[in-house]
Design a binder for these strands. Sequence first.
DNA 1: TTGAAAGCGCTAACAC
DNA 2: GTGTTAGCGCTTTCAA
Lengths: 340, 340
Amino acid sequence: MGYRNSVGEVVDRPPAITIYDVAREARVGESTVSRVLRGQGAVSEKARERVLSAVRKLGYVPNRIAGTLASSGSRLVALVIPSVTNNVFGDVLAEASATLTGLGHQAVFAVTDYDQSAEENLIESMLAWRPAGIIVAGIEHAPRALAMLRGSGIRIAEILDTDSTGIDIVVGYSNTDAGRTSARFLLSRGKQRIGYVGHDLSRDLRAGKRYGGFCQTLADGGSRVVDSEIVPELSSIEMGRNSLAKLLERTPDLDAVYFSNDDLAIGGLFHCMSHGIAVPERLALMGYNGLDAVRLVPRPLSTIRTPRRLIGQVAARLVCSEEPSQVVDVGFELIEGATV
Amino acid sequence: MGYRNSVGEVVDRPPAITIYDVAREARVGESTVSRVLRGQGAVSEKARERVLSAVRKLGYVPNRIAGTLASSGSRLVALVIPSVTNNVFGDVLAEASATLTGLGHQAVFAVTDYDQSAEENLIESMLAWRPAGIIVAGIEHAPRALAMLRGSGIRIAEILDTDSTGIDIVVGYSNTDAGRTSARFLLSRGKQRIGYVGHDLSRDLRAGKRYGGFCQTLADGGSRVVDSEIVPELSSIEMGRNSLAKLLERTPDLDAVYFSNDDLAIGGLFHCMSHGIAVPERLALMGYNGLDAVRLVPRPLSTIRTPRRLIGQVAARLVCSEEPSQVVDVGFELIEGATV
DNA sequence: TTGAAAGCGCTAACAC
DNA sequence: GTGTTAGCGCTTTCAA
């Protein structure tokens, strides 16, 4: 037992300055201190000043744990996302966090690592903080996660996908349509022998939906995915490079490859560059996400840009609002680039 | 007033299931429920089962706000970082979050956008949640921020820099040394006319320290930075491209350029590639960070790799521990690459 | 305009 | 093993 102070010594009491101490110092009641600090209710100028100077003198920092419990209304908003290192979620997180801060809320987050059962547990543990709202990636969740969300009584935003029915607020776009659009684009450029390089579709459901839409449109056009290579680990530039190499070794006569995201596609582009494969003449490459980097590699990548920052912002705003449940389709944009 | 249910209707009571409800349902006392849920204290098998089934039946989710207040010990750990989109902090965040989760803690974070006064406010607002510990980037802080941290009585980890004295735990490396190492490397390869492309040094103090060390070592070797270009906005591949262009327009006879980070350096490399500037024969490029991408661009970038994931992990572990205050220097690694 | 007092939902003694 | 009870630090009536 004991508390560590700034020099690392163990002392026996924490600096537990409470609203009561402030009230004593300012010679007012506790509720007056509370009123001053929250800027609510009428307080005389005299009292206000005394309280404020007591706060400064004591170095008082209000305890929001207690405040939240008493008012049964937290300013916490939880975010449950698959990854932080992936730029897509970084963007969502950055914008959501900024928006929430602006609204006087505080972001708490947890990372699922694309694992639905981890998601289930994390949702539960986030809900235990009684947040004002929760933002989760995707609209597919484990049954118990769904039940907990529904039963929580708080606002829920499901983001990055509009392909099925959400619980409360949905902010995203159709991944199926994104896949379809990519396929249509390749077909319109006369591509015939099309390959696919993707990461684990059973974990990343949205990538699976894109692939589904892609295949469907190819089929409608009388075509199909000739060969595909699934990346075993996390997608990365390096895996894209290796996977395209493998795919082409097996099926050298492809004239286009669709990648499940830009990281893989950029890796693919690097493979082509270092092996003298003419892009897009000999082989067309199509990515997905619209990362900043795709415009800047020596040959701008053809891809689909998703409005991730906007999604973060809108989701954050709605989840703190009283607006009715709704679906916000923010769409996506085909970037024609120079690799198709 | 009112609470919104899953269909968006406003109902007058939240599903406020408390430990008391569970106790009634299971026909035990509240403390027994608490014991079962926290896995502490002796409870009979019968009671445990009854409690667990009541929990399931009622869909009870414990209220950690109340639990924390009652036990005056939170499992929250706060992170205050300059940015989430920057891969460096993404890595730190990812690893710290994973480590904390493993230790039964929960990460809360706030983004300062490299603004010291924002940092000050965010530290205060994080401290209001009475976290078990706090992890902040850097060791330079506003005086009031320092005072609040010192007075908080919680564990504090300052990360990514060991160039001055910290408060409690410090996990990082010397940015000054990193700058020195880069300069030494360029000098050892016979570079004479050296330029610099960097982002706003007054905001990113660590980049400033690197530049300081860099200049110092050049001076020791009888050299100096011939010309420099400061990026006005956030660093990015695009800004690196533009800035190098400007720098070379002004001072075409440089034989090496030191960039304040890899994003800028990669942009510089792309500029050289698209303008037929031979790297490193005509112009050497040196980055900083060791992002994954630097190994994979057509010409591997010379840079310094910093162990960011390790920093996140160690900081998270120590901040939850009882270990004495300490400085952990994790060092950095010179990546020779192919651009110097 | 102000203070007293009753909770918020839980944990942690303390009795039994 | 188990229940009772007194807080944790605040907000929020309610009187004054």
